Amino acid sequence: MIKEIIVVEGKDDTTAIKRAVVADTIETGGSAINREILERIRLAQERRGVIVFTDPDHAGERIRKIISSKVPGCKHAFLPQELAERRGDIGVENASTESIRMALNNVKTEYEGAVSQLTWEDLIEAGLIVHPDAAARRLAVGKKLGIGYCNGKQFYKRCAAFQISREEFEAALELIPPPER
């Protein structure tokens, strides 16, 4: 049984989660997340903790950002898009039970007001921003770090919020080719 309540987008996500693990969920009802749902998430965070587990797409990232801004200290589970896709549809409901368990075993805790061990210049040097292949490189490094895909500014914020150490960052970089200059 997972102690925290898992926040998902819809009923099909709840079904997939419950096939993989024993857990309680809160469904946001999609991207139209309202005050009542946010209040339930806030209460769940206070009493049991929350794991945000949204789809690895634009709408899922939007929901994740809304929850993070309104309910500090949540944990986050990330699925790579390729593990959440079936017939062109991307979502947690399409992931295998093994993929769901893997994501939940690698949750990241968000620390509000955390200071990054990394600098903006570190990201430039690594070719993760201001580089022709930056998006693909962020995708690969984000996958290795377990923080998902996002744009450069959000990647930097996630590294701080999830307290990604310089050692973790450098180890993830070693697994991809160096940036071509």
Rank of each mutant, 00 (worst) to 15 (best):
G142L: 05
V92F: 03
G127H: 08
I124V: 07
I90C: 10
L104F: 07
T119E: 12
E121V: 14
R86Y: 10
C150Y: 01
E98N: 12
Y156P: 04
S96Q: 08
G146P: 00
R138V: 14
S96V: 07
L139N: 12
N105Q: 12
E110T: 01
Q163C: 15
G152T: 02
V92G: 14
D89H: 07
V92N: 11
L139V: 02
P80S: 10
Y156H: 15
V115P: 00
A103P: 04
Q154P: 00
G127Q: 11
E112D: 13
R87I: 01
A84Y: 04
E93R: 14
S96I: 06
Y111I: 11
A126R: 04
L123P: 03
R87L: 09
L104T: 00
P80K: 07
V107A: 02
L128P: 04
K153F: 05
Y156G: 13
R101M: 09
Y149G: 01
E125F: 00
L139Q: 14
C159I: 02
E82V: 05
Y111E: 10
G148Q: 06
K157N: 09
I164P: 00
A160Y: 03
R137P: 02
Y149Q: 12
Y111N: 04
E168C: 10
E168M: 15
N106Q: 13
L104E: 03
D133S: 15
V92Q: 09
G146N: 09
G152W: 15
W120T: 11
